[in-house]
């Protein structure tokens, strides 16, 4: 990015204007992060902590979805792409063609919570049930022991990594040759927060999102692959007993350098991981014992 030196100088000028003198030994720079809406809040928190340690490195964060992050990594408009799914071989190939060689970092783990309205009597479901609901084969809550209401299915937009993951795991049941699709009636909302808002007020709605977004305003269902039901929490994501668990990623173009390296190292370090934990994700080094303490 040609803009970067300019921005750095500008940022320095701004600070100098505030009467602070810059210690020449302090690292300075600018990091642009784009991508996953699932972890945008967590990354925001990490960057706030980061900027306390490195006051002259400026971090800009944009959400929009994993697809947005990966597309901008390929077109070199961001330093770090955050992602809630792995890059597809097709995307890596395209990146290589344009001289971008993505390097992957796992930054945290996440469970995808399936959420409903608080007054919905349904508490648990199997992946098979979800498949029926989200492909439109089952359309009434009665079939699952709920009220006589038409089910309203909510999904994220196609640019979302969570959308892709859910599609592969639930809609296509991990079968590579499956051509099943989300029911056309599914509402495609532009952010995880919009899904929370709709679920909080609509008794007939069901949606999914990263477990960092679960709050008291909504209810997360217990899920089962076969018979045993598990809640989306740190323990079950770690043990992989919760059926919809996945890693969250950062991608950089080649080995990160300068400010971007500082940021990635910080995010992977204890202070960064603490922020992921506080925003509801599962940090890397977490063990079940730690959680019990």
């Amino acid at each position: 990015m040609k803009l970067k030196p300019v921005l750095t100088v500008l940022a320095m000028l701004l600070l100098a204007g505030c009467g602070k003198s810059i210690d020449p030994n302090e690292p300075a720079g600018f990091v642009q992060i784009k991508g996953s809406d699932t972890i945008v809040n967590a990354v925001q928190k990490v960057s706030e902590e980061f900027m306390k340690d490195y006051p002259y490195v400026f971090v800009a964060i944009t959400g929009g979805g994993t697809g947005v992050g990966i597309a901008s990594l390929i077109s070199k408009t961001c330093d770090v792409a955050s992602a809630s799914r792995e890059m597809k071989p097709k995307e890596i190939q395209l990146a290589n063609q344009r001289g971008v060689f993505p390097k992957e970092f796992v930054v945290a783990y996440d469970g995808i919570a399936v959420i409903v309205h608080k007054d919905n009597p349904v508490n648990k479901m199997t992946i098979g049930d979800l498949h029926k609901i989200f492909t439109g084969k089952a359309t009434n809550w009665k079939e699952f022991g709920g009220k006589d209401l038409r089910i309203v299915t909510l999904s994220r937009e196609v640019s979302s990594g969570t959308h892709m993951y859910f599609k592969e795991e639930v809609i296509q049941l991990s079968k590579k040759d499956s051509t099943e699709e989300f029911s056309a009636q599914t509402l495609l909302l532009t952010s995880s927060q919009a899904i929370v808002e709709e679920i909080a007020t609509n008794e007939a709605a069901i949606g999914y999102l990263g477990m960092g977004y679960v709050s008291e305003r909504i209810k997360a269902l217990l899920l089962a692959k076969d018979e045993q039901f598990y809640p989306p929490d740190v323990e079950n994501v770690l043990k992989k007993t919760y059926p919809l668990s996945r890693p969250l990623y950062f991608y950089t173009n080649g080995e990160p350098t300068g400010a971007a390296k500082l940021f990635v190292d910080f995010a992977l370090g204890p202070k960064g991981q603490q922020q992921f934990k506080e925003t509801g994700f599962v940090p890397l080094g977490a063990t079940i014992a730690q959680k019990d303490q």
Binding site: G67, S75, E91
Partner: peptide, 16 residues
């Protein structure tokens, strides 16, 4: 789904 929302919602991730 409207024409405009489709462009806005999907342009970000469509690789040029």
């Amino acid at each position: 789904r409207t024409l405009t929302a489709t462009i806005a919602g999907e342009m970000g991730e469509a690789v040029s």
